[in-house]
Simulated assay, not measured.
Amino acid sequence: MTSDLDDIRELAEDFATELRRKNRSQRTINGYLKHIEYFRAYLAANELPTTGPAITREHIGQYIESLLTRTNLRTGEPLSPEYARGQYRSLQQFFKYLETEEIIEVNPFDRMTQPDAPERQVPVPPLDALKRLLAECAGTNFEDRRDTAIIRLFLDTGCRRGEIAPLSVDALDFAENTATVLGKGRRPRTVPFGDKTRTALRRYLRVRAQHPKAVNDEPALWLGKFGPMTDHGIGQMVERRCQAAGIEHIHPHQFRHFFAHNWLDNGGQEQDLMMLAGWRSRQMLAKYGKSVAVDRAKAAHRRARLGDQI
């Protein structure tokens, strides 16, 4: 027998409480809750049960299949397999929690496998495009100084957008030329930056000091017209700057791929890259900058000149 307490919308709030206890970031929690709500909406629309104990493997399979055949309402293009895989993983963790709490007797994800998705290579932005992007922000007004500092910090540290966006002024250390960011799993790490980034940040801080929010002791580093910028706002800024520069759109995460590729291409050690990027798995080394791995291999071969030594 089930009750309203077993409705997955109610159970999702309990799941969120557990995630907060585990010190998961609010962004991560919101992602789980969004996917669970999408699933519940699908169940309700198809007159399927929405209570945890009544949901079966077949219900989940039907939902994943619907995602793989659905189109984006804005573009008309099919949703990517990665989108379905992301929702699969979120629901899998949710039902694992329900099983642990003994809310369900049988986990419908047992012996299920996530949908296949071809690995997509993220293109590394060409150097010329990045130079044009920075040139587009070369003015001296508040937004130019801010946007230059944001883009240079991305390129110089390889940080994620979710790490750059919530930075506070106090996170910057100009004695060491470092920034302290909060990475995945809410793990802090310190990332260094170079002289050009330092100059861009110092120039921004000088104009930031005149911002109305800064006068009111706002701790957030990045300020917009109405207050602190969000990670979404930073993404919009990059898109707007790319359009103005007349270059192909660059997603902020591509800066991270550029950083990883550049590091390896210049002979940087893989272990150091893992520490700087906040990775625990060496699998990430293969993923980032993979689209230009062949170019790095060719350049290494030319440097080695193996055939010429015989």
Rank of each mutant, 00 (worst) to 15 (best):
S80K: 13
G86P: 06
L127Q: 14
I55V: 05
L43C: 04
P81T: 10
D128S: 10
F94T: 00
I60D: 02
A41L: 11
D128Y: 07
Q62C: 13
F109L: 07
A129F: 09
A129D: 15
I55G: 07
Q62E: 15
Y83M: 12
Y42N: 03
T113K: 08
D110H: 11
F95I: 00
P78L: 06
E99L: 05
P108Y: 02
T69Y: 13
A117M: 03
T113V: 05
V122M: 02
L48I: 00
V124W: 07
V106S: 14
T69N: 15
D110C: 02
T75F: 06
P53A: 00
P123M: 04
D110L: 11
R40L: 10
S80T: 11
L73Y: 14
T50C: 06
E102C: 03
K96E: 02
A84R: 06
A117Q: 04
H59M: 09
P53I: 01
A117V: 02
L67P: 04
P78F: 08
L68A: 06
I60Q: 05
L98V: 05
R111T: 03
N46H: 14
V106T: 15
P118S: 08
P81Y: 10
L79N: 11
I60K: 03
T51Q: 09
A84Q: 07
T69P: 10
I104D: 02
I60S: 03
V106H: 15
L130I: 14
Y83R: 13
A41D: 13
A84D: 06
S80E: 13
P108L: 02
D128M: 10
Y63N: 13
P81L: 08
G86L: 15
F95K: 04
D116N: 14
V124N: 04
T56P: 04
D110V: 11
L127E: 15
R89A: 13
L130F: 12
T69E: 15
Y88N: 09
N107E: 01
N46P: 08
Q87D: 08
L127W: 12
R132G: 13
E82R: 15
Q87Y: 12
D116K: 15
N72E: 02
L130S: 10
P53Y: 00
R74C: 05
G76T: 03
Q93D: 10
L73K: 15
L91G: 05
L43W: 01
P126R: 11
Y83P: 07
E77H: 09
S90C: 15
E77Q: 11
A44Y: 07
P118W: 09
K131V: 12
Y63A: 13
Y97D: 01
E58G: 14
P123K: 02
I60M: 04
L68D: 09
L43P: 02
E119K: 05
R74S: 14
P115K: 04
S66I: 11
T113L: 04
R111L: 04
D110A: 12
K131A: 13
R89I: 09
T56N: 04
K131T: 11
L73Q: 15
R74M: 12
N72W: 05
R40A: 11
E102V: 07
